[in-house]
Computed example of a mutant assay.
Amino acid sequence: MEHYREHGDGYGYNPEDERENPNQTSKYDEALHKYNTKLNDDEIAEKTAKLIEKHLEENNTLEVKKFLFNCIDLTTLKCTDSETSVMKFTEKVNEFVDRYPDLKNVAAICVYPNMAEIVNDTLEADDVKIACVSGGFPSSQTFIEVKVAETAMALHAGADEIDIVISVGKFLSGDYEGMCDEIEELKEVCGDKHLKVILETGALGSASNIKKASILSMYCGADFIKTSTGKEKPAATPEAAYVMCQAIKEYFLETGRKVGFKPAGGINSVHDALVYYTIVKELLGEEWLTNERFRLGTSRLANLLLSEIVGSETKFF
């Protein structure tokens, strides 16, 4: 894991170090001990509500909506996806450049790995990434060898970014090593390509678990942490976002590394998007208000934002 070790404290150690003394505290427990992970769910809900009430309206501006549009990972993850439908989906992103020359395009197109090649062959718009869900998405219930192969194949087919899901079952049963080994191995496959790690916050059960999963995912090399797959209920929530952004801030203060944040699933309105923007702005600050560090995983939001930006109902995508 030379890629991580060179950055100093806060990244993976050599696994051999741990085996020399099996009775010592696990490196994952040591990583978690640097942070406050004992959170009260009611307190988090109250802090989140107060933050939104105080600051949301000041962010309800045209410029913020334009920025949010440029942060969208335009997503199609349906069982009905086909090469033809994904090609048409991608062509819409190409057409956007001519139709709205004064607006920045979406940040990325997010598809299943077997659709990366058709997006790569079709995409002409500049500054739009190709993101692929991988690693047995959305359940993460498959062999690590399959996860590695799928991720490598997605990258080979043209993916710029990979979205994986933590092994939630391993995390909840306390097998941090099993969960973290997978993230580290998949980050190694990605190299300098962004790895977004999905926590599936709705399945984690508490703010404390969300904080722990956030810290461990960043510790293992995540370039982004992401709330949800959108396939489980509840999906993204403001409270989960609050905890994750707080974790990102604390992790940055501890290690000096800036990890991105991506809410996804259940982002059904412009108001929802403004809520997440407000949380990021207030907890993480201006340095995170770039699509290199903030994304929104959604499909339906693009037309809603575009409608408010242009001032009339628009169904472009």
Rank of each mutant, 00 (worst) to 15 (best):
298 T>Q: 03
54 K>Y: 02
143 F>L: 15
47 K>F: 04
33 H>P: 00
225 I>K: 05
265 G>P: 04
182 E>K: 10
258 K>Q: 10
145 E>D: 10
159 A>Y: 06
231 K>L: 03
132 C>L: 05
78 K>E: 08
143 F>Y: 10
61 T>Y: 11
143 F>K: 15
8 G>V: 12
167 S>A: 09
105 N>E: 04
158 G>R: 08
187 K>D: 03
173 S>F: 07
6 E>Q: 14
299 S>L: 08
5 R>I: 14
40 N>R: 13
126 D>R: 14
263 P>T: 13
211 K>D: 02
99 R>I: 10
34 K>Q: 11
120 N>V: 08
147 K>C: 00
179 M>H: 01
267 I>M: 07
264 A>S: 12
109 I>L: 12
235 A>S: 10
207 A>G: 04
124 E>A: 10
138 P>K: 15
122 T>S: 11
159 A>C: 08
247 A>M: 12
126 D>W: 04
75 T>E: 01
313 E>T: 10
211 K>E: 06
253 L>H: 11
299 S>H: 07
219 Y>L: 01
239 E>P: 02
41 D>C: 13
76 T>R: 06
153 M>I: 12
170 K>L: 06
32 L>I: 13
217 S>A: 08
6 E>S: 09
184 E>D: 03
233 K>R: 11
189 V>C: 06
130 I>R: 11
294 F>K: 11
79 C>D: 13
152 A>K: 15
140 S>P: 03
11 Y>D: 04
63 E>P: 02
172 L>S: 02
7 H>E: 03
131 A>C: 15
112 Y>Q: 08
101 P>H: 09
255 T>L: 04
270 V>M: 02
137 F>V: 11
5 R>Y: 01
103 L>I: 11
102 D>P: 02
130 I>S: 04
203 A>W: 01
223 D>V: 11
40 N>L: 08
216 L>N: 01
272 D>C: 12
163 D>L: 10
205 G>E: 00
289 L>I: 15
214 S>W: 02
43 E>T: 15
141 Q>P: 02
220 C>Q: 05
25 T>K: 13
258 K>A: 09
230 G>H: 10
159 A>G: 05
228 S>Y: 08
172 L>R: 13
1 M>I: 14
